[in-house]
């Protein structure tokens, strides 16, 4: 229904008012207070909007327990991937995850104190650890906790889980585990699978700028000529890298007939 008055708010103005609470122009506001047609227009918008938000608000969001368990890596692979997918579309949950990660990272003095406990060196007296591989628990004496991101990667057939540990003797230890998602396509032998780590960001010298390198990226920049680390999987599909410096890497896992490439692999200590 259209209002013929010149002072009537335009559709766009009324929509902004109804949907986002934006103020109406003074004339339009005054007109609205007196015009039943425009009041009906407004009601149409607000009712539709409230109905839809009331029905759809965060209906796809996983609950906080699942999100927090996602943060600490205790979810089964399927749930983990589902949440990862949801996080790509839902900024509210992405924000929740960022907050959870921030809150769940314990203060450093707590770590140090706990690490100095003799208990830390007496695991035989401890409870059996089951189903708990949170990054926040990878604590070692006089070191910070190591983190790797992503901690999981999956193709149609192969899953790769990544775990970083701080080792006071040899720095950060990066452990990878390859496993089959499904054996429908026949088994894959991971024994001997080669994994290479490269510096993800070119090491620039002098006035060299990234823009100068990008046009020649197909020529393979120098930092890509040789991996900084490489290793092979054992019979159980496990690969371990020792003394990995904190940084950003590119990882290539050479599988039969294909390869997994993780362009941004972050290894850090907190």
């Amino acid at each position: 229904m259209e209002c013929p008055c010149l002072g009537a708010p335009k559709d766009e103005e009324l929509l902004r008012y109804a949907l986002d609470g934006d103020a109406l122009p003074v004339m339009a506001q005054k007109h609205l207070e007196e015009c039943q047609i425009c009041q009906q227009r407004l009601t149409t918008y607000t009712d539709a909007n409230k109905f839809l938000i009331g029905q759809l608000y965060r209906y796809q969001c996983p609950d906080l327990t699942l999100l927090s368990e996602y943060c600490i890596g205790t979810l089964p692979v399927h749930d983990h991937l589902q949440i990862e997918l949801h996080l790509k579309s839902c900024p509210l949950c992405a924000s929740d995850v960022a907050e959870a990660r921030q809150f769940l990272t314990p203060p450093v003095d707590l770590l140090d104190q706990k690490l100095s406990s003799p208990f830390a060196d007496a695991p035989l007296d401890s409870l059996q650890l089951v189903h708990w591989r949170a990054p926040v628990t990878v604590w070692h004496k006089k070191t910070q906790a190591a983190h790797v991101n992503p901690s999981h990667y999956q193709t149609d057939m192969v899953a790769l889980s990544l775990e970083a540990r701080s080792d006071c003797q040899s720095g950060i230890l990066l452990k990878l585990t390859l496993s089959l998602v499904s054996e429908a396509e026949g088994p894959i032998l991971f024994d001997g699978t080669r994994v290479e780590l490269y510096h993800a960001v070119p090491i620039l010298t002098g006035d060299q700028q990234l823009n100068e390198i990008l046009p020649y990226i197909e020529l393979l920049p120098k930092h890509m000529l040789k991996p900084v680390f490489s290793a092979q999987a054992d019979t159980s599909g496990q690969i371990t890298f020792h003394s990995i410096p904190v940084g950003e890497y590119l990882m290539i896992v050479y599988l039969p007939e294909t390869a997994i490439v993780i362009e941004r692999l972050y290894i850090e200590e907190r």
Binding site: I72, L110, K114, F119, A120, S126, Q128, L129, V136
Partner: peptide, 14 residues
């Protein structure tokens, strides 16, 4: 279950 008091408290914090 938890192998250290720190991990138990971390879970409580969660």
């Amino acid at each position: 279950s938890f192998s250290t008091i720190a991990s138990a408290l971390s879970y409580l914090r969660l």
